[in-house]
Amino acid sequence: MLKARVIVTLKNGVLDPQGKAIEGALGGLGFEGVDHVRQGKVFDLQLDTEDRAAAETQLKAMCEKLLANTVIEDYIINVT
């Protein structure tokens, strides 16, 4: 059994209005000096396999087909 974490973030250059709103809210709460906030998504998955290479291939397909919009988002896969 392998565990994986997929982190999906907007590509550089893609506007992030939610990140800007979070940045403004943090400033409003007194957290000064916070700049360039970018928001993203995290997916934790458990895979019923011990084959790391197969798991990484399957995870990449999941990202390409569902978990990330690869036109505007990048993703990072970590398998443990």
Rank of each mutant, 00 (worst) to 15 (best):
M1K: 13
L2H: 14
L2Y: 08
K3I: 02
R5A: 04
V6L: 15
V6K: 02
I7A: 01
I7L: 15
V8M: 05
V8S: 11
V8D: 11
L10K: 14
L10C: 09
K11D: 01
N12V: 04
N12M: 02
N12W: 02
G13H: 07
G13R: 09
V14C: 03
D16V: 00
D16S: 03
Q18T: 05
G19T: 00
A21C: 04
I22L: 11
A25S: 14
A25L: 13
G27A: 13
G28T: 07
G28Y: 06
L29E: 03
L29M: 15
L29C: 12
F31C: 11
F31A: 12
E32L: 09
D35R: 11
H36Q: 11
V37F: 00
R38Q: 14
Q39F: 05
Q39N: 14
G40A: 07
G40W: 00
V42Y: 02
F43C: 06
D44H: 13
D44M: 09
Q46M: 08
Q46W: 05
D48Y: 06
D48S: 07
T49H: 15
T49W: 12
E50Q: 13
E50D: 15
D51P: 01
R52C: 09
A53S: 10
A54L: 13
A54N: 03
A55V: 03
Q58H: 10
L59H: 11
L59T: 10
A61V: 05
M62L: 15
M62C: 13
K65W: 02
L66A: 07
L66F: 01
A68D: 11
N69W: 08
V71E: 13
E73F: 08
D74Y: 02
Y75H: 09
Y75A: 07
Y75M: 04
I76D: 11
I77V: 15
N78T: 15
N78Y: 02
N78M: 13
V79H: 05
V79R: 12
V79Q: 10
T80P: 03
